[in-house]
Structures are given as C-alpha cells and as structure tokens.
Amino acid sequence: MLDLHGYGPSIFGGAILTIELAVLSLVIAFLLGLIGASAKLSKRRTPRYMATAYTTVIRGVPDLVLMFLIYYGGLNGLNAVTDWLYEISDGEIDMVIRFNEFAAGVVTIGFIYGAYMAETFRGAFLAVDHGQIEAGKAYGMTSKQIFKRIMFPQMMRHALPGLGNNWQVLLKTTALVSIIGLSDMVKLATDAAKSVGEPFLFFIPVALVYLVLTALSEWGFRILRVRYSAGVVGA
C-alpha cells in the first residue's frame, strides 16, 4: 500500500468511511424515495403536496447549504434541548450529548437524495403497465402483494438508469462531509497536503479511488440491469 509520508493508511481508511457513508445514505435515500414517490402518486391531496414541496425545495437548494442547515441546525437544537433539561431540573440533569457527525452526514445525504430518488421512482411507477396491476387484482392479490410481486420488480427496471445516475452523484457528494469536519478521505488528504505541502501527491490517489468506485458502480449497475430486464424482449 502507498505510504505517502506515513499518511497513506489513514487516507485509505478514510476511503472506507466514504464507502460506508455512501451506501448507508443510499439506503435512506432509497426508502425516502419510495415513500416520496408513493406520496406524489397518492389520490389524497395532503401527501401529494407535502411530497412535491419536499422534492422541489431540496432539489432547488445546494447540497452544501442543506448540509450546514441540518448539521449546524441539529447541533443548535441538541444544545437547546440539553440546556432546557438543565434549566428545568435545576442542574440535576447535566448531560452532554455527543453529536455523531457520521450519523448526521448519513441522514443529511440520505434526506437530500431521497428527493431525487422520489422523482426517479415516480416516473418508473408510472411506466408500469396498468393492465399488470389489474391482472394482479383479478388474481385476488392484496395491495401489498401487488407491490411486492408486480409493481416493484417492474418499476425497478425503469428506475435503474436514473438510480444509477443518482448513485454516482451521491457518491461524489459525500466529499462535502469533509467540510463539516468528518474525517473522510478528502479531509484527511487536505490536512496531509497542507502539512506536507505536496497537494498533488495526496489528491491524485483520492481522485483515483473515486474513479475506481465510479467504474465499479457502472459495472454493478450493468449486472443489475440484466437481472431486472429478465423477460423483456430486446433489452
């Protein structure tokens, strides 16, 4: 493994953190996206409006600003709660809750990309042939069974290209957590570059890791596409 003036191992350790962050954020974004898409396609007005507000606002504001808002805002909120507990208990409850930066990063990125996923899934749900759902109903399936057996597998085929794009953007967005102080590989490389004074030596390996991750994801999504296109002629 590259030594890089002794910083090598810790920077590649940061790469693991980047991957963990990206994968966990993807899980949250995926779930929020499914909920958001269902809400957008809902017959009732309230969930539809709420989901539209969510996707419009989140997609209209830079990731970094949202990150500051959620991260620093969360920090403020937590302090307010502990201060309040201290006040009402006359100093009995004096706790310091450590704000978990990693969790904050995951929640923030997941929340942002949930909005992009919701748009992707909404289009994909609409692309599923309505006759398929009617056929499911005719077979006496419950709506849960229809979702699991008919809607979801076919929706995924239409969603995969958009999902792949979102994932690639999400992966690169994780670099922003270095700005709010999380020790991902960008932060470690920046600190090392500043103290050693050789920026390219540290930034080029980090860039290469991102390129490798991008290439691996492309390959992974190709396999997924084959899998979800099973039974489609000409795909």
């Binding site: 922003l176 270095s178 390219f200 930034f203």
Partner: peptide, 11 residues
C-alpha cells in the same frame, strides 16, 4: 465527471 468537484477545486 468521475471525481468530485471539491477535489478538482482543491487540486
């Protein structure tokens, strides 16, 4: 397109 803009800026 494969690397974060932040890395490009820092470099």
């Amino acid at each position: 397109r494969g690397t974060p803009l932040l890395i490009q800026l820092y470099m």
